[in-house]
Simulated assay, not measured.
Amino acid sequence: MNILLIGEYSRLHNSLKEGLQKLGHHVVIFGFKDGFKDFPVDFPIEKKWDSGFLKKIKVGIFKLTGFNISSYLTYLQFKKNKNQFVNFDVVQLINENSFYCGYHFEKKILEFLFKNNKKVYLLSCGTDYLTVKYSFENPEIKSLIQPYLEGKINNKNFQNVLKFRKKSSRKLHEFIYKNISGIIASDMDYHIPLRNNPKYLGLIPNPINVENIEVQPFSPLEKIIIFHGINTENYFKKGNDYFEKALAIIQNKYNDRVEIITTRNIPYQQYIQLYNKAHILLDQVYCYDQGYNALEAMAKGKVVFTGAEKEFEAFYNLKESVNVNAKPDVNYLVESLSYLIENPEEISIISKRARMFVEKEHDYIQISKRYLSIWNQ
């Protein structure tokens, strides 16, 4: 099979590519490298006029004319290589706005892809029109909408979410849905809003290449190391404010028994090296299920504070915890961390379950086979 994967989030498409290649398929990734994470991409797109003085000029021109220079420059990069993106058996979009363009140029790129390839599928693994709509209609559920509604994030810093409430995003969503063969969710947070959608093909868990991930053995006699990696752009969306407040209490309470590592906006490889020695990793609080970062840490045997709501446990038929269900509640987080620090044998137990869970449910070869099964329907 000849497969084109558009875009990258948290290494999802790279892991899927590795699995598909092992099964004998030809795979190409085209798109952005997921910001500072800088993941490998066969045909990379660079964000232009997106910082400093040029960004100020871009914003000024957009306010005066409505013309988005960054979108236009992205389109030119696509146009230059467009003959590389034809005659694929399957094209998969990472998002409804994979190219981060405004409606006009995003649609032009997608029209070409729809016209010149056999089948196109859409992944729901981040914010898009339907998930944002569902979150605003159901504000009581765990989602990144909650810190916005609490006033922690202003409109300007929430534009990458609020843009999906605009008329142009609805139009783009409708255009994509008319042309795709179906939509696939990567976890429960995207599965729930898509239930009963006629284009929905089901949940396929994130692929994890467990062959390249080693488990670091844990001794209960060691000082317990807690890792908290922060992407400042998503600070409140991930609930990092709750984690930081909880960690300040933990540091004061267990100063001689814990080591706390906090990072901000560091490259992926450096991030991995620092968190490798940790026993506990703090991921995010506003989710039902685990994203890629949490799963990769679980594969390494870390005890991860992330989404593990009853919907997640029911879906995988879990009887014992494979991580810690994080909540936007400082006292709850302190209590949960304290229990692990005072009962280090529990860290070892959850560590083993976490690895076994990822091996069973997220193995990249088995997940690749599930994608192939859906694409071949």
Rank of each mutant, 00 (worst) to 15 (best):
M1T: 14
G7V: 11
Y9P: 06
Y9T: 15
L12Y: 14
G19V: 11
L20C: 12
Q21I: 15
L23H: 05
G24C: 03
V27Q: 06
F30H: 13
D34Q: 14
G35L: 02
F36Q: 07
V41A: 12
D42P: 12
D42H: 04
I45Y: 07
I45K: 00
W49M: 14
W49G: 08
G52M: 09
K58D: 14
K58G: 12
G60Q: 03
F62A: 13
L64M: 15
I69R: 00
S70Y: 01
T74A: 13
Y75Q: 08
Q77R: 12
N81R: 07
L93W: 00
S98M: 04
H104I: 15
F105N: 10
F105T: 05
K108N: 10
N117T: 12
K118H: 10
V120Q: 03
L123H: 06
G126C: 15
T127F: 02
L130C: 02
T131H: 02
S135V: 07
I141A: 00
Y148L: 04
Y148S: 04
K152W: 05
I153W: 11
K156M: 07
K156L: 13
Q159N: 11
L162G: 11
R165T: 15
K166T: 15
K167M: 11
R170M: 14
K171P: 01
F175M: 03
Y177C: 15
S181A: 11
G182M: 04
S186G: 03
H191Y: 14
I192P: 02
L194S: 08
K199A: 14
G202E: 06
I204A: 04
P205E: 08
I208R: 04
N209D: 13
E211Q: 12
N212Y: 02
V215F: 05
V215D: 03
Q216E: 06
Q216Y: 03
F218Q: 00
L221Y: 00
I224M: 03
H228K: 11
G229E: 02
N231P: 00
N234C: 05
F236D: 12
A248R: 06
I249Q: 11
I250H: 01
Q251S: 13
N252Q: 15
D256A: 08
R257V: 05
V258C: 01
V258S: 09
T263K: 12
N265H: 01
N265F: 00
Q270P: 00
Y271R: 12
L282P: 07
V285Q: 08
V285N: 10
Y286E: 10
G291I: 06
G291K: 00
N293G: 09
L295G: 08
L295P: 07
A297T: 07
K310L: 06
F315H: 14
Y316Q: 04
N317M: 09
N317L: 09
N317C: 07
S321Y: 00
V324M: 15
S336P: 02
L337K: 06
E342C: 04
I349R: 09
S351R: 02
S351L: 07
K352Q: 14
M356E: 15
M356N: 14
V358E: 02
H362A: 04
D363H: 07
I365N: 04
R370T: 12
W375R: 02
Q377V: 03
